[in-house]
């Protein structure tokens, strides 16, 4: 069984976001790039499945749609334990474009299970996994918190107030939520060394239309200063909530 993990290359979560070119483009100077946290958990679970001798997973491959900048992120995925990495050489314009590119790759290369993080921590589109399932006519299961490949393939998903277990067949797309793995793995020295020898294949992008265009980004307004009210003057708090914040 082969697993493909979709990897999004995103700015570190502590990045101070700035834009350029009339606020139409992210200013990526000085940004430290990381594996999208949901994708990193998906990769961790994929590796756990491979390491579990009780099932037949024999390959974990990571794939990303992006420029050469993303190769450091892919190499980290290899250092963590992925067997090989694919970079589709294209600027990831939007979710439709990314899903379309991965689908083109999947049409030529068969994988049994595809992991996609439920969203990426940069643009938070939450769409690639579902679109990919649709393009491929695979079942797509969202909010997945566990994948079990024992005798039957059983996928758990988080639902309000509990969880739902779904039996499914391969191939399918698991759109994973936090909980799919306990915590992401830290690459070991041996893993970092072995990553040098693992394949990182760059393939040309397919000719696909880009359907959307960013007109403008806006940053949220800076937070106002916090006012501290003495607990003995509750009336002052009510007054401020009523007349200044106008929420009462």
């Amino acid at each position: 069984m082969k697993i493909l993990v979709c990897i999004s290359n995103v700015p570190d979560t502590t990045t101070k976001v700035k834009f350029k070119e009339d606020n139409t483009l992210l200013d990526d100077s000085g940004i430290q790039w990381i594996i999208n946290p949901w994708d990193e958990l998906a990769l961790t679970r994929a590796l756990e499945l491979k390491e579990d001798a009780g099932n037949s997973v024999n390959e974990v491959c990571v794939i990303n749609v992006g420029g050469s900048l993303t190769e450091a992120t892919l190499r980290k995925a290899l250092a963590i334990g992925a067997d090989k990495a694919i970079r589709i050489d294209a600027c990831p314009s939007d979710a439709y474009h990314v899903a379309g590119q991965i689908a083109e790759y999947l049409k030529e290369n068969v994988y049994d299970l595809i992991f996609s993080g439920i969203e990426s921590s940069d643009y938070n589109g939450s769409s690639v996994g579902a679109m990919l399932a649709e393009f491929m006519n695979y079942s797509g299961i969202s909010s997945v918190t566990n994948v079990n490949l024992d005798d039957d393939i059983v996928v758990s998903r988080a639902i309000p107030g509990g969880k739902q277990m779904i039996k499914t067949e391969t191939p399918f797309v698991a759109i994973v939520q936090k909980g799919i793995a306990k915590e992401p793995r830290i690459p070991s020295m041996r893993g970092i060394m072995m990553a040098r020898k693992k394949p990182l294949e760059v393939i040309p992008a397919a000719e696909l239309p880009v359907l959307t265009q960013t007109v403008k980004f806006e940053l949220p307004q800076a937070k106002g200063t916090c006012k501290m009210i003495d607990p003995e003057h509750v009336e002052q708090l009510v007054e401020l909530l009523k007349n200044e914040a106008k929420v009462l």
Partner: peptide
């Protein structure tokens, strides 16, 4: 190198987490 940064990040993650 990319590898240096990966090792630095691994050490940082380990220190913060463990």
């Amino acid at each position: 190198t990319e590898e240096h940064l990966m090792i630095r990040d691994a050490a940082r993650d380990f220190a913060q987490r463990e």
